[in-house]
């Protein structure tokens, strides 16, 4: 799978890093992780899961039937764990670099307090 990961893919892998989840659970977890910014619909979610299963980053964990509805649980594979770790490290380094640059910029552009004009007359 190409890196950097797209945000929905990153969030799906992050959601599955906690515990195996079924489709409905995954949608809720991705919404919570993104503070409501990313809301996946089932058609989009299962398309993404197909690609992740093909790339061997996600595996089928188990199946259950609840209230007559099939629920298939997915879990992060060892390859998915490695990909998510590498992507998280890449993002962390980017965040650190950006934070350092912004802090330096903030120091450089801080307004200088006006000197007192005149003397001690």
């Amino acid at each position: 799978m190409d890196t950097p990961l797209r945000e929905p893919t990153f969030l799906i892998l992050t959601a599955l890093a906690g515990e195996p989840l079924h489709g409905y659970g995954l949608i809720g977890e991705v919404t919570a992780l993104s503070d409501g910014r990313v809301t996946l619909r089932p058609g989009t979610l299962y398309g993404a899961l197909d690609r992740l299963v093909d790339a061997r980053l996600v595996e089928v964990d188990r199946e259950e039937v609840v209230d007559g509805r099939l629920r298939r649980y997915y879990r992060l594979s060892p390859a998915g764990d490695a990909t998510l770790s590498a992507e998280t490290e890449r993002l962390r380094r980017n965040v650190e670099a950006a934070t350092a640059r912004l802090a330096a910029r903030s120091r450089a552009t801080r307004p200088i307090s006006p000197r007192v004009v005149g003397g001690l007359a």
Binding site: Y24, Y46, R69, L70
Partner: peptide, 11 residues
């Protein structure tokens, strides 16, 4: 199919 429709019905 059953899994996808089940998720829509859950939502």
């Amino acid at each position: 199919g059953a899994e996808i429709v089940g998720t829509y019905l859950d939502l």
